[in-house]
C-alpha cells in the first residue's frame, strides 16, 4: 500500500504545506548537503541498483551530474525508487527534488500536473515485444491481442490510440509495478508487452530467455524522456536543466571524462574554457561555483561517455546510438544543447 501512502502524503502535503516552503530548493539542498532523486524500481541501463544498492544508469547520471555541479561530488544523492504511478505525487509532495526516471515530456504533465521538464536525456518511442515463436512480425498483426503494460504511463494512452486508430481490438492488462508486467508477460498472460523501446530493451534482460523474444519494428509514439522538477522553482529547474545541457555540450566540443584534465589545461577555445570553468563565470547565474560544469564532465562524464557506459552497443541493453535521434546533431541526431554561456 505504498502507493496509497504516497498519494495520502501528497494530499496531506498539498493541504498543509505553506507555498513558501517550496521556494528555495537549491538553498535547502545546499544546507542539508544532499538531495533526493526519484528513480525507477530497476530499469537496467537507466536506473538500476546493484547487489549493494548502488544505483547506476543514464537517468541516475543526470542526478549525479546535478550533485557534482552543486557539491563537486556526484554522490550527494539519495535515490528513491518509485513506480510510474507514484512518481509525480512524490515530486509534488517534496519527497524527491528531481525525478529522473524515464518520464515522457507531454503537454498535460507540463501544464496541468504542476511539473516542469528540465530537458530530454533520451529520445524514445513506444514499441511492442512478442515471443518469437508467435510468428508475429508487425504490430499490425496484433488485432485481439492481450497487452501487458505499466499503470500510470503514457504507454496506456498510446496503445489505446494505436489500436483505435487501426480499428483493432485488444485486452489491456495493466500492472502497477514493472517487475509484475515482466513476470506476467513471461508467464504467457499476454501476447505482447508494450512500453518505451528503451524500456523493452532494458526489461528484456530480465526475461527467463531474452533471446526468445523480439521487438517489433513499429514505433507508435514519441517519448522524449527527461528529468522533471516541481513547477514554480525556476532556480532549481535551471540547475537541473544546465547540468544536463553541460553534459551534451561537452560532448559537442570533444570534452570527455578521460581527456578533460589535459584538454582544459591546454585549450585555447573559449567555449571549452567556459565549460572548464576557466572563463566566463557561468556559475554565478546558477548560484553555483564556476567549476560546476568541469566537475560534471570529470566526475560523471559527457553525454556520450554516459550513454556508451550504460545503454550503448557494448552493454546488455545494447541500444546503438548512431542513426538514432540520440546521436548528437553533429552526427544527424537531434541531441542539441543551448550554449552554456
Amino acid at each position: 500500500m505504498n502507493t496509497m501512502r504516497i498519494s495520502f502524503l501528497g494530499l496531506v502535503c498539498s493541504v498543509l504545506m505553506v507555498p513558501a516552503a517550496f521556494a528555495g530548493t537549491l538553498d535547502t539542498v545546499k544546507s542539508q548537503g544532499f538531495f533526493n532523486c526519484g528513480v525507477s524500481q530497476g530499469v537496467p541501463g537507466f536506473s538500476n541498483p546493484d547487489a549493494d544498492g548502488n544505483w547506476s544508469g543514464i537517468d541516475v547520471d543526470v542526478c549525479r551530474a546535478v550533485s557534482a555541479a552543486i557539491f563537486g561530488d556526484p554522490d550527494k544523492v539519495k535515490y528513491v525508487p518509485l513506480t510510474a504511478k507514484e512518481r509525480f505525487t512524490a515530486l509534488q509532495a517534496g519527497e524527491i527534488d528531481v525525478l529522473s526516471r524515464n518520464t515522457t515530456w507531454t503537454l498535460s504533465r507540463d501544464a496541468q500536473i504542476g511539473l516542469e521538464f528540465a530537458g530530454v536525456n533520451f529520445y524514445d518511442g513506444q514499441g511492442f515485444m512478442v515471443r518469437k515463436d508467435s510468428g508475429i512480425t508487425s504490430a499490425m498483426e496484433l488485432d485481439g491481442a492481450s497487452v501487458c503494460t505499466n499503470l500510470g504511463t503514457t504507454t496506456e494512452l498510446n496503445m489505446a490510440d494505436f489500436f483505435r486508430a487501426n480499428g483493432m481490438a485488444y485486452e489491456p492488462v495493466v500492472f502497477e509495478k514493472a517487475d509484475e508486467v515482466v513476470n506476467a508477460y513471461d508467464e504467457g498472460r499476454c501476447d505482447t508487452y508494450t512500453t518505451d523501446k528503451s524500456g523493452l530493451a532494458a526489461q528484456r534482460t530480465k526475461l527467463a530467455d531474452p533471446d526468445a523474444h523480439v521487438v517489433l519494428p513499429e514505433t507508435i509514439s514519441k517519448e522524449p524522456l527527461g528529468p522533471v522538477v516541481r513547477e514554480g522553482d525556476g532556480d532549481w529547474a535551471d540547475v537541473v536543466r544546465w547540468s544536463l545541457n553541460a553534459m551534451i555540450e561537452a560532448e559537442e566540443f570533444g570534452l570527455t571524462q578521460s581527456n578533460a584534465k589535459t584538454e582544459c589545461a591546454l585549450t585555447s577555445n573559449p567555449v571549452v574554457a567556459r565549460l572548464c570553468g576557466k572563463e566566463g563565470g557561468t556559475g554565478a547565474g546558477l548560484n553555483l561555483g564556476d567549476s560546476w560544469s568541469y566537475d560534471i564532465v570529470t566526475k560523471v562524464g559527457n553525454y556520450g561517455d554516459v550513454y556508451e557506459k550504460h545503454v550503448g552497443e557494448n552493454t546488455p541493453v545494447g541500444l546503438a546510438r548512431a542513426g538514432s535521434p540520440n546521436a548528437s546533431y553533429k552526427n544527424g541526431g537531434v541531441l542539441y544543447a543551448p550554449p552554456a554561456r
Binding site: M4, L11, S14, Q92, Q112, I113, G152, T153, V174
Partner: peptide
C-alpha cells in the same frame, strides 16, 4: 483503485 485512483489520476493529475 487501479482504474480511477491509478490511471485516471495519473492522466489528469487531480489527486485531491
Amino acid at each position: 483503485v487501479l482504474v480511477f485512483a491509478g490511471t485516471a489520476l495519473m492522466q489528469t493529475g487531480q489527486a485531491i
